[in-house]
Amino acid sequence: MPSEQTGAPLLDVRDITVSFDGFKAIQNLSLQVWPGDLRVLIGPNGAGKSTLLDTIIGKVRPASGEVQFGGEIISRLPEYLIARRGICRKFQAPGVLESLNVRDNLRLAVRSDKDVFASLSPKIRPQEEARVNELLTLTGLTERQDVQAGQLAHGEKQWLEIGMVVAPRPRLLLLDEPTAGMTAQETAQTAELIRALAGQHAVLVIDHDMHFVELLAAPVTVLHQGQVFREGSLATLRDDPDVMEIYLGRPKEAAD
């Protein structure tokens, strides 16, 4: 993956610490992501991967340190404003809007003006409709566009949500176990999709499935006990005895 490490980082996580009732889920963690990067985060359960994403999107506030995005400190903004700055996250459990149909799910994601009064205008911009069609094609859900999202199969929900987070063309995509519950074939397709997305967006992926991580062919960051433990390619990390050790006793495929 091209990773132009010159210039300013898009996402700059600076020395953050997050604690829950005294338990430090993240300790003095720093991480940079450059525009167009594809980066994978791995680590055993409780390593702080999901908490890191929670902190970036503002769901959890760091006790110290700050998160910068495009040069702006975002760690004190309300969540919806962080999202509007161009960070979209796909959650671990599929988070689709169950009572709306597939098309409406994507429409809401695509809308550029997200204020209350703007939503009262029934007019749909042609370029937004075009984008919705494009996303339907991208996610392979064109046939299913009138189906209520709650009725979709699990894998379809995952794809719909990926479509939704891609929809507003965010500068940074955060994908939390995007292939959970997918078949091997779906997983391969998802990897392909994500590789296609990188470049246009910076993408940060969390996953446990080493086969999937391999397919992504991207730099890997290992988190352990709330800190960055190692960085490198999957191949080098596999041979690293320390990385082996923190995973010891748990088969990699079943880590979740």
Binding site: K59, Y80, A83, S99, L100, L108, R111, K114
Partner: peptide
């Protein structure tokens, strides 16, 4: 209007709506 869909969306999944902006 989309306002109506958004009310449904927020009822269904407040977090998803919030993190869409």
């Amino acid at each position: 209007t989309p306002f109506g869909s958004l009310l449904t969306a927020i009822r269904d999944n407040e977090n998803r709506s919030r993190f869409l902006g």
